[in-house]
Design a protein around this nucleic acid. Structure first.
Lengths: 343, 343
DNA sequence: TTGTACGCGTTATCAG
DNA sequence: CTGATAACGCGTACAA
């Protein structure tokens, strides 16, 4: 059943049928109703490929993500997909892993599929070396590029993120201002977000003129158990610490397991701040205090900006939200903030 | 840059260019090389929409999933996407939520997009009432339908799943054969998988001629904290239980929190078996013993079957794997099985 | 081995 | 308000 069949049945031309389908041009109410009736009864659906060929779009957005099984990314993908679908776009998911080359290759593959835009899920796509981000600029030359939780200033690139640096600075400051000095920042990657967290941590020390032993910023990528072992090793080497600010909840739970292994009472002797407000944080005992980076809002903003751009309207190149601390059982010094719920 | 441009540059017809691109018909080595060179230097990529129009496929698979942010589903989506991509298919993700109508609607939307097949991720798509599954049969009339972790016998429907009934029966049997009688099955949904778990649980009792109080099978859908409260309520009503077999790790952790609330020592006084071998299980203390339902293998099988079907070859309508018990800290009676790693 | 010409289903343009 | 027709870019019989 194609547009020719419909036009024949209705005794009109295909142009008129097309006009009715797309509701843009003016068609007499009578013929419109007639065609509508025939469309309904024949269950006619336009062929998407022919449509794509004509319009040069199939209303599809590419979602590029290092690992969609990750706690944080999977939620992001979920929120994004729902928001896109609500705007009548489909989402093609593409998991890249961590290698730069694979990311660039998969991004190209997505562009070859003529997606209308690309959303980069997670700041791991932003490399510290500027030239390594060329693949993003190349993509942005073809379609709008949205970056979730990362920032790259470039034409046709739009970023929705949370102010990781600020909240880490705030949290660190609270510890420092309560006389705590033996802090440790345990973060996972040298991504945009990772670098912000590091900067925020350092900044809090610097503002107070306090020295910061470089051993107190630990870049570590591994499982929960490995994180625990890493901290045991750090302690073994003679560095004392009674507070861990973690770059994500997995690392925070690693820290909690470290505390268990060392028989340190949490939060009395040992304080832990998690990150991402993931479900992991309510599995352990005590439950994690954690930084809520407003993922849901970030995703809404990302999609809102994208839709604006796709409709030829302006959109902010950067949308930044502030984060909240959710105090549960692994800290004591923070104000309790109402949780946004959902877990 | 389209196929006409290339053909002009090479001084051949578009047919020859097409032949080279698709490598099927015979082209002289000389012209082939010439065309290949031009393709490389001009960075020519066939327009996918035109290609789709001609071939009636864009090599895309629809992934339908209730909630891709869920621990279990997100891993499934991840494995499936990777396997599909390895087979040169793209995955369109569509999260449906739990309502039957939405599922049917989104499935139709996927079909309208002319996906080559649909993968239903999770047994929640299989309704107890047969007529409610008509939407799946309708879809299967158009494209192959793969069901992950569920089973529906129908033409053009292929299922890859884990033998949930068997493993629950086995686990229950171990408990019963060690003289445990006060078991509770806590499961989340009346999905295909949920019904299998229930059947396995009942079966173990029946085989031994043991009576089973219906209050010992608790169908409950809620958060970790709610699961804890639910168990507290069950206990409050006078039912004694010292063992919980959970339908997923969230519920198992709910049970663990229940034990904490009641000051019951785990696993000495209270035993808990989780399900899915998710990351949640290694967050708590003690870590969860859990049933590993071989999700990664299930996904490989699902995609393998699909590829077979798409290539016109036969495929088994049902591929069933057996599950393993991974004993960690919340049980004592089970053999330790080597973990497949990855968490 | 290569080229021609048509079909695919739609939208856009222009003429009426 | 409506119709005819030309793109859109590719795959592929069929012809040479």
């Amino acid at each position: 059943m194609n547009i020719y069949d419909i036009s024949k049945k209705a005794g009109v031309s295909i142009a008129t049928v097309s006009r009715v389908m797309n509701g843009n041009a003016s068609v007499s109410e009578k013929t419109r109703q007639k065609i509508l009736a025939i469309i309904a009864e024949t269950d006619y659906t336009p062929n998407v490929f022919a449509r794509g060929l004509g319009l040069n779009t199939m209303k599809t957005i590419g979602l590029l993500c290092a690992d969609s099984s990750d706690q944080f990314f999977s939620r992001a993908v979920y929120y994004l997909e729902r928001a896109l679908r609500a705007s009548h776009y489909d989402a093609i998911l593409s998991c890249t892993g961590m290698e730069l080359e694979t990311r660039a290759e998969y991004l190209k593959r997505l562009l070859a599929k003529k997606v209308d835009a690309v959303i980069l899920v997670g700041s791991s796509f932003i490399e510290p070396v500027a030239s390594h981000n060329q693949y993003i600029l190349d993509a942005a030359a073809e379609v709008p590029v949205i970056i979730l939780n990362g920032y790259l200033k470039a034409p046709n690139v739009y970023c929705a993120l949370c102010d990781d640096g600020d909240i880490v600075s705030q949290v660190t400051s609270v510890y420092l201002d309560h006389g705590k000095r033996d802090l440790l920042l345990l973060y996972r990657s040298d991504s945009y977000s990772g670098r912000c967290k590091l900067a925020g941590f350092k900044n809090a020390f610097a503002k107070r003129g306090l020295p910061l032993d470089p051993r107190r910023t630990v870049l570590f990528n591994g499982t929960i158990a490995q994180a625990r072992d890493k901290l045991l090793a750090v302690a073994e080497q003679g560095l004392f610490f009674d507070t861990v600010i973690a770059g994500d909840d997995e690392l925070a739970i690693g820290a909690l397991k470290y505390a268990k292994a060392r028989h340190l009472a949490v939060p009395e002797q040992f304080s832990i701040m998690g990150y991402n407000n993931s479900q992991l944080g309510v599995c352990c005992e005590p439950e994690l205090s954690t930084i809520d980076n407003q993922l849901s809002f970030c995703c809404s903003n990302a999609v809102a900006a994208l839709m604006s751009v796709l409709n030829g309207k302006p959109a902010p190149a950067k949308t930044m939200l502030s984060a909240n601390v959710i105090q549960r059982g692994t800290t004591t010094l923070f104000d309790t903030v109402r949780e946004s719920g959902g877990l």
